[in-house]
């Protein structure tokens, strides 16, 4: 697979696997928790589940409104 020159550029240091996976893992864990929480109990956990599952939506809106450009 040919990666674009920006990816190969030596101008920026490479991220460690931890840096690459840090946010996806945190968001994934929150989504997993949200999916299970509402199944386990009603009431407060329903709200917590919706909030946890809404994190990806919030992030996409955030990056759309305040783009991190390069």
């Amino acid at each position: 697979m040919t990666l674009p020159p920006e990816v190969h550029s030596t101008a920026r240091p490479r991220h460690s696997p931890f840096m690459i996976w840090r946010w996806p893992l945190l968001i994934g864990a929150a989504s997993g928790f949200g999916l299970v929480a509402a199944l386990v109990a009603d009431g407060v956990l329903d709200a917590v589940a919706a909030a946890s599952l809404a994190i990806p939506v919030f992030l996409v809106c955030w990056f759309y409104l305040c783009p991190r450009k390069r």
């Binding site: 697979m1 990666l3 920026r12 991220h15 690459i20 996976w21 955030w62 990056f63 991190r68 390069r70």
Partner: peptide, 13 residues
């Protein structure tokens, strides 16, 4: 990961 080696999370070029 290969695409994100030199990009910060959430970066849109």
């Amino acid at each position: 990961p290969p695409w994100m080696r030199k990009l910060d999370f959430g970066t849109v070029r």
